[in-house]
Amino acid sequence: MATYDFLFNGLGLRGWCDGGKTSDAPVSMADLLAKTGVKEEQTIWNLPFPSLNELNDACGSMAQSRDVTKGVEDGFLAAKDALRFVLDPLTQPLSWILDFTLAAFEVTPWWIMFPLLMVVVYLASKSVRLVGFVTVCLLFLALVDHYDHAMQTLAIIFVCAVLCVLFGVPIGIAMSRSDRLQRITIPVLDMLQTLPPFVYLIPLIFLFSVTEPKLYGIAIILYAIVPVIRLTDLGIRLVDKDVIEAADSFGMTDRQKLFGVQIPLALPNIMAGVNQTIMMSLAMVVIASLVSAPGLGVLVLRGIRNLELGVGLVSGLGIVLLAIILDRVTKAALNRVNAAQKQ
C-alpha cells in the first residue's frame, strides 16, 4: 500500500498501472531496505514528495528516477559512437601537438631551457628584476627535483594557451561584429564558466580514452578559452566610437580597420583575457592530472592518494610559483601595452 495509490485510483488509472510490467531498472538499496523494514504509520507530517520513485510505488507503470539517469546514459552511449566518429579525427592533431611539445620540453636540456625562458621573460616584460625572480624560482624547482614535472605542466599550458588564443580571438572578433552571434555565444560561455571543472571530465572520459593527451587538452581548452573570447569581444566593442568613425571617414576597409585600429586598441583587454586564460589553464592542468595529464598535478595527486604530506605540499608550492611566474610575466607584458596606449 503506497502513499499515492489514491491518486491513480481516483483518476481511474488503476488498470493501466497494474497492466504495465514493473520497471526493469535495477533495484536500489533503499528499495530492498524498504521491503524488509516495517512500514511507518502515514501522517501528514511525513508525507513524502510525489517524486518519481514514490509514484512508481503506487503505480508500476510510472518511471523511476533510475530510469531517468539510465536514459541519459543510454542516450549518451548511443550518441557516443557517432560523436566519436566525428570528433576523434578532428581532435587528433591536439594529441600530436601535446605529445610533440611535451617531448620537446623534455629533450631540451636544462642548460638550454633556462636561458631560453629567461630570454622569453625578458622579451615579454623588459624587466630584469622579473627575469631574476623567475630564475630563482626555476632554480628552486630544479633543486628539489621538480624541474621535469614543472616543464611538463608548462608545456601543456603553453600548447593550450596558444590554442585558446588562436581560436578565442577570432571567435571574440566575430562576436563583436554580430549581436546575434553574441546572443547565442554568451549562454554557452556562461555554461562553460560555471560548470565545475570535474563535470567537464565526465563526458570526455566516455568519448575519448583516458590514455590520450587530447582528453585533458580539450578539458583545459574548453575551461580556459572563455576569458579570452569574452575580453576580445568586450575590448573591440569598447574601442572609442570616435576613432572608428575617423577610420571610416578616411575610407579604411573593414580589414584595415580591424588590424589597424580595432585589434590594436583592444589589445589591453585581449591581453587581460590571455592572462586569465593562462591562469585558468594552470588551474585545470592540475585537476586534469586525474585523467593522466602529466606534470606537478600528478605529484599533488600522489600526495592526496598516499597521504604523502611533504610531496603534496612541495609540489603545491611549485604550482604556486609557476602561477606567480606566469601571472607576473603576462601582467608585465600587459602593462607595457597599456603604457604605449595611454590616452
Binding site: D240, D242, V243, E245, A246, S249, F250, G260, V261, P264, L265, L267, A340, Q341, K342, Q343
Partner: peptide, 12 residues
C-alpha cells in the same frame, strides 16, 4: 577629409 571634435587620433 575630416577633422573631429575629440581629435580621434590613434593612441598606439
Amino acid at each position: 577629409s575630416m577633422v573631429f571634435q575629440k581629435f580621434a587620433l590613434l593612441p598606439h
